[in-house]
Design a protein around this nucleic acid. Sequence first.
DNA 1: GCGTCCAGGTCTACC
DNA 2: GGTAGACCTGGACGC
Length: 296
Amino acid sequence: MVKTSLSIKTPSNFDFKRTAYSHGWYDLRPFELDETVWRLSRTFEIGAKTPVWTSVFYEKGKLKIEAEADLDKKQQAELKRQIEHILRFDEDLDEFYELAQKDLAWVAANGAGRLLRAPTVWEDLVKTICTTNCSWALTKKMTNGLVEKLGDEAMNGRRGFPTPEKMAEMSSDFYREEIRAGYRAPYLQELAEKVASGKINVEGWLNSDLPTKDLKKEMKKVKGVGDYAAENLLKLLGRYDGLALDSWLRAQFYKRHNNDEICEDKQINRHYAHFGKWQGLAMWCDMTRDWLTNKN
DNA sequence: GCGTCCAGGTCTACC
DNA sequence: GGTAGACCTGGACGC
């Protein structure tokens, strides 16, 4: 039941559908996207007794927020801040849009380029590890398991993403046998312990002063994080220097730009090099251009 | 139903 | 720095 209704003014070039549907995160719990009415829902940890189940949708130039809890002013402000964060309101895409005018003009025209992210770097990091070396079905199974078995419950019974502390309590065997994380099991356990104990501050990566190259090195110190995972996470932090190439992205490139023939990664890099620090975002937009076809 | 093969990214050991 | 093999799961396929 909706107990708090709020609204936020969106940036002028903001497109809710393109942002919610920007990549697979909308499909991973605790996110839920109802494409029939374009409502994006999930739990938020905003200092209330329990996580707060909240839905957002776009109406008349404003983003409407409906939370299933009575929220005080402080909690309302925190909820707005987290929603602006996940929908990337702070992303200044003007420079990218200008660069894209030549061969990706549709990007600016359609307000594309904002990549949905979780409220915390922690959640994005764990989910990214769960995308490596497996099918999307298995990624969904792992994240669903984490949320269902370890997430705190909101008032409506829906669960949030587990905290590092909660995940650190569980054994490697739990992640292997219950979450079906396979060889990733000890990686998840070790990561949770390090984050919970403060040995690694992954939230600090968001506003890190480190050059991207050095930040990527830091990320790759986490077991289970290689080139693809680090570059994917960097994109979610707003750094698009890397292409985060995985098998799907490569296959899409071969189809669209290489007559469906396999080529070396060097060729893919060359293709997007003129986008400079925006090349990762340029490639992602290029490969996902048709995602909203038949969904409007 | 069972066994085999394969895709998917990263790690470790080795050169 | 580059490479090979192992890691583990689920789906596809053949029998």
